[in-house]
Amino acid sequence: MRRRVLLTAAGATTTGLLAGCTGNPAVAEAPTVRFSLDALPDAALPGEVLYTIDPAEGTDADAQLMDRILDGGTTTKALREPLPPQQHLLYDGHVYELAADVVDTTPGTSYSVKVDVVTGSVNDDAAIQFSDLPDVDQAQFAAKGLADGDPVGIGTSFHYTDTERDNSVLVPESEYDYITWADGAEAEWVVDDAHDAPVHTYRYTATTVASASEYGRRMRERFAFPLTDLSAEQREFVETAITDEYYTVAPDESPPDAFVALTDQFRDEEQAHALDDTAEDDLNGPYLVQYNEDVYWTVLLVHGPAFRTTTSD
């Protein structure tokens, strides 16, 4: 499983963070404050900011590809890079940077298609049994989980190389309007659009940047800053964020003056991010905070006029 935990707490809406509280994420209102602190060791910090491949997913294609890359490099075919090159990524306790060079290209086309519900009756003269489709067409249905005719009523895309297209009866101009299955399932077949989509062969190699622990140490040394001169009320905010998962102020409430003053300590600090990336120029986002000799992954999300300055919202 791959994930890009790229500071989504800062970039995503605070509405989404409160969706579970309202029961209706579409209408949830952003909180005035959401402040969280999680104590993390150095080794855990890269996973908060880097594109991460989980080696525990033994059948995951990304993990398998990464293993081949680390075993001296490998080639793979895809429409676009399956793993991001030229950026730091985390895999199995180490941070790597990949290079991906295109060494071959096979012409191909992506077709926007509909496997739609039949609203009337099937014209038998314009229909074909799924089992009678050429292998290249059956393979497209199978790749989308549509080989059994259920579900239909969806729009999707099918990709054919030029050779596969020449062996198809469904693209570029379909010879049939309907597809039927032995169990009685049936679908209307529509080709809406097409665009060039060559298949590239990528040659991947990897460079080791650091162990996760070492990378996290560099992050801590670069980004961590202490919260200083806290009042008793401000310490209570911090302790609540640590023990209760987060400190929050409801959307219809004003933030305490002491909390507004606390956020001033964040304004001139660099947000935590990948070491090959740049920080967001915003008060809202993730930070590394030192508190009581521990380092905390800290997410600050604030909203409303109390937090507006000439440099941030």
Rank of each mutant, 00 (worst) to 15 (best):
H273V: 15
H195I: 15
T298M: 01
A274G: 14
V295S: 01
Y291H: 11
A212C: 05
E186L: 08
T310I: 11
A194G: 07
Y178E: 07
A100P: 08
D277M: 14
G184L: 06
D101I: 11
G304F: 01
Y91L: 06
A127Y: 08
H273G: 14
V103C: 08
F266D: 06
V103S: 07
R165D: 06
S211F: 13
R68L: 06
V169N: 03
A9E: 10
F237I: 05
G108D: 04
P46Y: 04
A39Q: 07
R218S: 07
D244F: 14
A206G: 09
D252Y: 15
R222E: 09
A206Y: 06
Y215A: 02
D229A: 08
E221V: 13
R218D: 06
T208D: 01
Y96E: 04
E269W: 02
H200L: 13
I179D: 01
R218T: 14
A182Y: 15
A127V: 06
A182F: 15
P84M: 03
T240N: 12
N284P: 14
L283V: 15
P255N: 09
T201Y: 12
T76P: 10
E164I: 05
D183H: 12
V95P: 01
D252H: 13
D282I: 12
L40C: 08
V302A: 01
P134N: 02
V209N: 06
T13K: 15
A194K: 12
Y91P: 10
T119V: 10
E253D: 15
D71S: 09
L18N: 14
S110F: 00
L40P: 08
D276A: 10
D196A: 13
L7R: 13
L300I: 05
G184R: 01
D148W: 02
D62Y: 03
K77F: 12
I69L: 00
V5G: 00
S157W: 00
G23N: 03
D104T: 11
V49D: 00
H200G: 08
T278G: 08
D135M: 06
T8I: 12
V169E: 05
A100T: 03
G285M: 06
D183R: 09
D38N: 11
T156S: 04
V103I: 11
A212G: 09
E173R: 13
L90S: 08
Q87M: 07
V103M: 11
A39G: 05
M66T: 03
V302I: 04
G16P: 10
F237R: 07
T207D: 13
Q271Y: 03
R218W: 12
V190G: 04
A306V: 12
T15D: 14
D135Q: 09
A19V: 05
L283A: 07
V169L: 05
T205F: 14
G153A: 00
T32H: 04
S174R: 03
L65C: 02
S121E: 11
V190L: 08
K77T: 08
D192Q: 13
P255Q: 09
R235P: 14
D38P: 10
T32N: 03
V95H: 01
A99P: 13
A274S: 13
E57F: 05
L18Q: 12
Y178C: 04
L70V: 07
D166W: 00
T156W: 00
G108I: 02
S213I: 10
T75R: 15
L45H: 05
E164Q: 09
P85V: 01
D148Q: 03
S131F: 11
T208N: 02
L170I: 02
